[in-house]
Nucleic acid binder design. Structure first.
Length: 200
DNA sequence: CAGTGGATCGTCT
DNA sequence: GACGATCCACTGG
């Protein structure tokens, strides 16, 4: 079980990185509490040329500043005033690519997740970007930190999903993005109950 | 089931 | 002052 090296993130093949992140482990550590989950759904956001991205057309604000740093850090922001959405920043410096993590299959720390969610674990406990952040204890405090931190990291335990299990679709909730909304930038595991949306 | 609307607040105009 | 890379409860069929 190894933390991914920065070289994993710091190049501009955003779709290649997205594909490679499928099946990796997201880990959070809070004191004695360790939680981890396997990535089963995500979306790529292709920087300045992608209308669905916060960095579209070179948009650069206090909020999305971390996207413009070199890959390998966390971009967390608040959505609808309620949900924290967790992104993996990728690309070389000034190349504001990111991958939104949308669903995990819980691996460790399920009792801790239940406590955070105030309910019993089921297939929805880490389903959807808002839910997984809450279950994993991710919020704005993690914005900008390294993905090789003690308290937050992405790891490879050798597990790989075969290509035949991976499906592509348009991204969720980006209808405003015109032609870019049609891009097949969402990756998910076929039939996995932790994947958001309707089964397909 | 599908469709609708409320929650709730940091961020940008 | 408006709105969002969401979620869930609630409605009606």
């Amino acid at each position: 079980m190894k933390k991914l090296p920065f070289s994993f993130y710091r190049h501009d093949d955003i779709l290649g990185i997205a594909r490679a992140l499928m099946g990796k482990l997201l880990v959070t550590v809070n004191g004695q509490s360790v939680c981890s989950g396997r990535i089963v759904e995500l979306e790529a956001y292709a920087g300045e040329t992608d209308k669905a991205s916060h960095a579209w057309n070179g948009r650069r604000t206090q909020r999305n500043e971390v996207m413009y740093g070199a890959g390998g850090s966390a971009y967390v922001y608040l959505c609808y005033g309620i949900h924290h959405l967790f992104n993996v920043v990728t690309g070389s410096a000034d190349q504001p690519h990111a991958v939104l993590i949308r669903a995990l299959e819980p691996v460790k720390g399920i009792a801790i997740m239940e406590k955070r969610m105030k309910r019993k674990a089921d297939h929805t406990i880490t389903r959807g970007p808002g839910n997984l952040s809450k279950a994993m204890g991710i919020d704005l405090r993690q914005n900008g930190i390294s993905l090789r931190s003690e308290t937050l990291y992405v790891a490879d335990d050798g597990f790989v999903f075969p290509d035949q299990l991976i499906s592509l679709s348009p991204r969720i909730g980006v209808d405003y993005a015109g032609e870019d909304a049609k891009r097949l930038y969402r990756f998910y595991i076929k039939g996995n109950p932790f994947v958001s949306g309707k089964p397909r």
